[in-house]
Design a protein around this nucleic acid. Structure first.
Lengths: 96, 96
DNA sequence: AGTATATTTAGATGGTTGACTAATTATCTA
DNA sequence: TAGATAATTAGTCAACCATCTAAATATACT
């Protein structure tokens, strides 16, 4: 699920805020855009980045596009970070 | 601990591989560089990015600089990702 | 001091990114 | 079909990023 663009997508604060907003449930592009002082096309660019990063799902209902979190990527991200950071270090194997 | 450059630093595959190598314990800049087909100065640039992102520590011993993982950032990253992705976050104990 | 080794800093270059305005596509309603 | 609304795509531009070579800095050794 995680691809080469996933971390890059997370690197932008606007996109992290979009994801955070989607935490509360799906929202339309327009609703999301209202939370930012950024032009519609620029917002669309961010939505595209999030889509390509597999971080969000999209569905259309009439004129509106509803975005929602792809929460399965969350687990994948955790796994990747664990792989990078969880080390066989002094305390690493301690059970509690 | 996490700053605006942390996610950006993680967005580069070379830097993720550096971090993964450091998982096994501290290594010198030279040792790390041997694992990549990238010039020394470019590697140094990546080390600098990782330092500014608070992802690694550095210590000098003689001519050599030893890099090691800053594992506390791991927890911070987990917390931030949980804040973004974990559905319904009533407690809101954020640590950013 | 002089030389070798380890690493970073400086400067240049091509590619990527984030922003904008203008134009286009998709859909709804009359 | 025409007009309004929602959102994206196209085109542009400045800023940033990853890379390189060359030069500089820091340390060790003789």
């Amino acid at each position: 699920m995680i691809n080469e663009r996933t971390f890059g997508a997370l690197a932008d604060p606007t996109r992290r805020k979009i994801l955070h907003l989607l935490n509360g449930g799906e929202m339309t592009a327009g609703e999301l855009s209202k939370h930012f002082d950024i032009s519609g096309p620029s917002m669309s660019h961010h939505f595209s980045a999030l889509k390509q990063a597999d971080l969000v799902f999209v569905r259309r209902d009439g004129q509106q596009l509803f975005y929602s979190l792809n929460t399965t990527v969350f687990q994948d991200l955790m796994t990747v970070l664990m792989d990078i950071f969880a080390q066989s270090n002094p305390n690493g194997d301690k059970k509690e």
